[in-house]
């Protein structure tokens, strides 16, 4: 029988392994990321500039609309396009994103099968410009290339684009997960909207653990495809891109979201406030490895 002291010790160790929200903000985000640099991540157009300059693969931008006036030729701009993605440049949490996959009889259809007329799209873009998806701040509409997902990822995904979220701190990849849309998440790869989180081993790129809506699972609830023990394709490239981005931007604690297209990894966006749910998804806390990386950095600074 365990006595109370060993129990308390183990409890403290376990609590000490988990990164809390307060600690993430105070010890990692605030000291690592300067407020003035937040737009590099928050503004997808600015992110794209950095990515373009360094030659990091990412979806091609078709159009940018910053004013209602710009939308006057929307008809012409979209006439030849049957698959594309509409995004707010400064949106958060995946809000305001529409993924168009085909065009039929003058209507566009989203990945979920919803029908959009030109006027529907124009109104949606007006909402974006008005800042509905970006806390009331004026925003810009980005029309970009739709990513065709790699077949090996399609095997484990249902109806939507999956992505890899990589936490990078001081140029070190800390923790990774893959986010798989479900029918419940309406094609969105956001955990709080019902996507599946699959923990991925950083070194091997093999999936180790999965959660959905707070509970552990082994198989995709829509397709029953087994999710654990799969090797993610292009894994070493994905890690390389994560580190490359951390060298590119002045942000020292960030989340990098990378989609796996049939042409290889493509960076979707970067995030200065990556969530802490990734710990549940991986079935382990990330405080220890963060602390070790931090200590290493402090030692390096002191040595210099």
């Amino acid at each position: 029988m365990k006595n109370i002291f060993t129990f308390a010790k183990e409890f403290r160790q376990r609590v000490g392994a988990v990164l809390s929200m307060n600690q993430r903000n105070l010890e990692y985000i605030y000291p690592s990321n300067n407020r003035v640099d937040f737009p590099i991540a928050d503004d997808k157009l600015l992110t794209k500039k950095y990515l373009l300059k360094a030659g990091v693969p990412h979806p091609e931008t078709y159009q940018v609309y910053g004013y209602f006036f710009d939308l006057r030729n929307l008809d012409l701009d979209l006439s030849e396009r049957s698959d594309f993605v509409i995004k707010p440049a400064r949106g958060s949490g995946g809000g305001g994103i529409i993924v168009i996959v085909r065009k039929e009889n003058g209507y566009w259809y989203s990945v979920g099968g919803k029908q959009y007329s030109l006027e529907d799209l124009r109104r949606h873009m007006c909402d974006i410009i008005f800042g509905i998806y970006s806390f009331g701040i004026r925003d810009e509409v980005v029309i970009e290339q739709r990513i065709i997902q790699h077949d090996s990822v399609n095997e484990i995904t249902e109806g939507g684009l999956a992505d890899v979220r990589l936490i990078v701190y001081q140029h070190q990849p800390i923790m990774a997960m893959m986010r798989l849309p479900t029918s419940a998440s309406d094609g969105k790869a956001n955990l709080h909207q019902g996507a599946i989180g699959v923990g991925v081993d950083i070194d091997s790129g093999i999936t180790i653990h999965a959660t959905h809506e707070g509970s552990y699972l082994d198989a995709h609830p829509d397709s029953n495809v087994f999710l654990i023990g799969r090797k993610i394709v292009y894994w070493s490239d994905i890690i390389k891109i994560g580190i490359q981005i951390s060298n590119l931007v002045p942000l020292k604690y960030l989340g990098v979201d990378i989609a796996v297209s049939h042409e290889g990894p493509k960076v979707l966006e970067i995030n200065v406030r990556p969530g802490i749910e990734i710990q549940n998804v991986n079935g382990k806390g990330m405080r220890r490895i963060l602390a070790a990386t931090r200590q290493m950095q402090l030692d390096v600074t002191k040595g210099a």
Binding site: R14, V18, G283, G285
Partner: peptide, 13 residues
């Protein structure tokens, strides 16, 4: 840790 985080990360803790 916030109190709610003990619940959120209960499986880890």
């Amino acid at each position: 840790m916030r109190f709610s985080e003990f619940i959120r990360f209960r499986k880890l803790i």
